[in-house]
Design a protein around this nucleic acid. Structure first.
Length: 596
DNA sequence: AACAGTTGCGCG
DNA sequence: AAAGCGCGCAACTGTT
């Protein structure tokens, strides 16, 4: 690469702190530096500027021509930009991409692999970034000690440039480099989206939430007390069990009470209780339902996670091994459908919700090039199409069979139905069966775009070895077989769940670009504490694996729905080209998200 | 009092 | 106690 040549049309801009790690604890007072790189790899001389001028620097260049901002960690860099009202079109998240590239079997060059691998200071968790802000805002009395920061990725420009070099080398020599490049940019777009979601927040109707809670639980109890309805039903359960002192909140104690009352269960879980007939059981199930609502999404949750009409959960892009997002705070991915009506558009705005019908089996059909399965889902409910194909008799059976095929079920209804699927959709079934075989043998599998699974751990390998030794017992062999099959089910599902996550990222990334092109609304809003960037035009508000919700001014709702639809078509094309698989959306536009 | 481990249930 | 994948979170239990 040529140093200091004036680059023509910069394509990347690598940014990082200008000085060594010693100033990283005082980021606000530090200096940043940036190097621009053009398509030929020519680098500009470093631009050096005060950290407080970061947003201005980015804004100026982004206005001139969007470039891909290369930085160590989106969660650490982007919030400050948004707070200053500056959005970027694209980025390259070195930490997330390092995670993908070090594991990917598409990276075959030995040297590139080992260089990436030895840069293990990049194999770290995301900087919690702005998410600590909320804690710091709390009343001083209850101020939470900020947990000692776990190691974060190196944030200097020098380190970023070195790592970017390593990653470019790895990508250049990779198999399926096009797919891998798409994954890296989709993953990075996801990182931007997560920060934007945090900034925008989910429009949340606290009054409606409180109404639902009060309706189910009774009025808000005083601190430490149980809600009326729980107390009441709890009493009825104890009466029905003829055990006035029965504890309902401790599984071991409750189990004892149930058995003493003649209910032969071996756990207190709902699915097992449902198999028994006893007057206490419906009451107990109702109690559990209320207890769950109260502790998981009750008033305490509302106080902690919703402020000024915005719910701000913490998303963790790439947090799941398969590439799905995880969450760490606020429980965005577990919001009970019961509370969906509290998700409500601002006055004059609407919510456009879209979820993909049967995303995973459609992705499987596309990956496997299974024309029969693709045809079963074309233009209609995939499960209905499978019934039409004659493989199974009912929609319910189709669903059980398909889920069983992707999860590796071998018993029960699924065990009976999966073989029928194998006859009708041999290509799709071969793909997941082969992934399972690889896993059973301790191997690694890779998604369509190039995310690879982790190999089994030491313990797993040890069990397999022990079982193949001459002195192995029957028990050793059974254990080894069992854990081998478990790992096979993991790899079987990995390729499908992981590729579905890739499709969803591509979908959101496309949608985000389309939404950014909408005009800014002229409405006069009272200035709000944060999220100004997203107060005036359509923005993503919620994401849940295969579902998005966009919050939009009324007048743009129809165009937003179309953008969501077009983004889905584009995502399918980006991943699978002309494969004859369509990704059907269930689209709804309304003031509040509906339960179903 | 702080910690790790388990249970149970919410979501896809 | 899942037959069948991936998670987070709260509450309880038992240990240190």
């Amino acid at each position: 690469m040529t140093e200091n040549a004036a680059p023509s049309t910069p394509r990347w801009c690598v940014v990082g702190s200008a000085d060594a790690a010693d100033i990283s604890q005082h980021k606000d007072h530090g200096y940043f530096a940036a190097v621009e790189i053009d398509a030929a790899g020519n680098r500009s001389a470093p631009h050096r500027f005060a950290a407080r001028d970061f947003a201005a620097f980015v804004a100026e260049r982004e206005a001139e021509a969007p470039r891909r901002w290369v930085w160590h960690d989106t969660a650490a860099r982007y919030p400050a930009l948004l707070d200053a009202g500056v959005r970027v079109e694209r980025c390259y998240d070195l930490r997330l991409c390092h995670q993908i590239l070090t594991a990917s079997t598409y990276v075959t060059d030995k040297t590139a692999r080992s260089e990436l691998h030895s840069a293990n200071e990049w194999a770290v968790a995301a900087d919690p970034g702005d998410t600590t802000r909320q804690l710091q805002d709390g009343p001083a009395l209850f101020e939470i000690e900020i947990t000692p920061r776990s190691r974060t990725a190196p944030d200097s420009l020098a380190a970023a440039l070195d790592e970017f070099d390593r990653q470019c080398c790895a990508l250049q020599g990779a198999q399926q480099a096009g797919r891998l490049a798409l994954l890296l940019s989709a993953e990075s777009a996801g990182a931007l989206i997560a920060v934007e979601l945090a900034s925008a927040g989910v429009p949340w109707d606290e009054t409606e939430h409180d109404r639902i809670l009060t309706e189910q639980l009774g009025p808000r109890p005083s601190l430490g007390a149980k809600p009326e309805r729980m107390v009441e039903i709890g009493q009825q359960v104890r009466m029905a069990l003829a055990d006035p002192r029965a504890s309902l909140d401790s599984p071991p104690k409750l189990l004892g009470s149930l058995r003493a009352a003649g209910i032969e269960v071996s756990s207190t879980s709902r699915w097992e209780l449902e198999e028994h007939e006893h007057p206490a059981i419906p009451l107990l199930l109702q109690y559990k339902k209320l207890a769950r609502l109260f502790s998981a999404n009750g008033w305490a949750w509302l106080d902690e996670w919703v402020q000024n009409g915005r719910y701000r959960p913490v998303y963790v892009p790439g947090g799941v091994v398969t590439g799905r997002w995880a969450s760490s705070g606020g429980g965005a991915l577990q919001l009970p459908r019961q509370l969906r009506p509290a998700l409500r558009a601002d006055p004059g705005w609407l919510l456009v919700s879209a979820d993909v019908s049967q995303l995973e089996p459609r992705v499987l059909a596309a990956m496997a090039g299974d024309r029969a399965m693709a045809a079963a889902g074309r233009g209609k409910d995939l499960y209905a199409g499978i019934v039409e194909s004659g493989a199974v008799a009912t929609r319910q059976e189709a669903k059980i069979a398909v889920l069983g095929a992707m999860y590796g079920s071998t018993t029960g209804d699924a065990g009976r139905l999966v073989p029928r699927l194998r006859r009708t959709f041999p290509a799709a079934m071969r793909l997941v069966d082969e992934a399972a075989t690889v896993g059973e043998q301790g191997g690694v599998v890779t998604t369509w775009l190039g995310r690879s699974s982790h190999p089994p751990g030491q313990e797993w390998v040890g069990l397999q070895e022990a079982a193949s030794l001459p002195g192995a017992t029957k028990r050793d062999e059974e254990t080894a077989r069992r854990v081998a099959r478990e790992f096979g089910r993991f790899t079987r599902n990995f390729i499908v769940q992981g590729t579905a996550a890739e499709w969803a990222l591509a979908w959101m990334a496309q949608l985000r670009l389309r939404l950014a092109a909408f005009p800014t609304a002229n409405k006069q809003l009272p200035a709000k504490a944060s999220g100004q960037v997203f107060e005036h035009s359509p923005h993503l508000a919620f994401f849940l694996h295969d579902e998005v919700i966009v919050h939009t001014p009324r007048e743009h709702a129809a165009a937003v729905a179309e953008a969501i639809e077009l983004a889905a078509v584009e995502a399918g094309r980006l991943l699978f080209g002309d494969a004859p698989v369509d990704f059907r959306l269930d689209l709804r536009t309304s003031e509040r998200a509906l339960k179903d």
